[in-house]
């Protein structure tokens, strides 16, 4: 299963980015293959509108089934994520990626 994180950096020790649509990086961990990849999302800064749907679409293309983030997606993003079958977990905005993953594993994050 592919798990996506919104983060401010590219590795496990990076701080989580509490924002979804305008997150700086998307990190994807595949817990079956144990692979870890990062995707630069900083282009989104140039977009005045529709950051939420755009980032949601990226998650769909990356094949993520779970999203771990901070504040949670807005209305439009949530609609796309739902259609894409991505489950969202929120409240990890103040953690680093490693802590966020642990919290998710321990069922400490709220499902959106």
């Amino acid at each position: 299963m592919k798990i996506a994180f919104t983060a401010k950096g590219t590795d496990w020790d990076s701080q989580m980015d509490p924002r979804f649509g305008r997150t700086e990086y998307i990190l994807v961990y595949d817990d079956e293959k144990e692979t870890f990849e990062s995707f630069d999302n900083r282009d989104i800064e140039n977009e005045a509108h529709g950051a939420g749907p755009k980032t949601s679409q990226k998650l769909f293309e990356l094949g993520a089934q779970v999203l771990i983030t901070g504040n949670g997606p807005g209305g439009n993003a949530a609609t796309v994520l739902q259609k894409a079958g991505v489950k969202s977990f929120i409240g990890a905005g103040g953690m680093n990626v490693k802590e966020a993953y642990k919290a998710y594993k321990n069922n400490e994050l709220k499902e959106f």
Binding site: E47, A48, H49, G50, A51, P53, K54, S56, Q57, F60, N76, T79, V80, K83, A84
Partner: peptide, 15 residues
């Protein structure tokens, strides 16, 4: 230009 039209696999979503 506004990401109001999004393709998601076999469907097009309009916002």
């Amino acid at each position: 230009n506004f990401h109001a039209v999004i393709q998601l696999g076999p469907q097009i979503m309009v916002f």
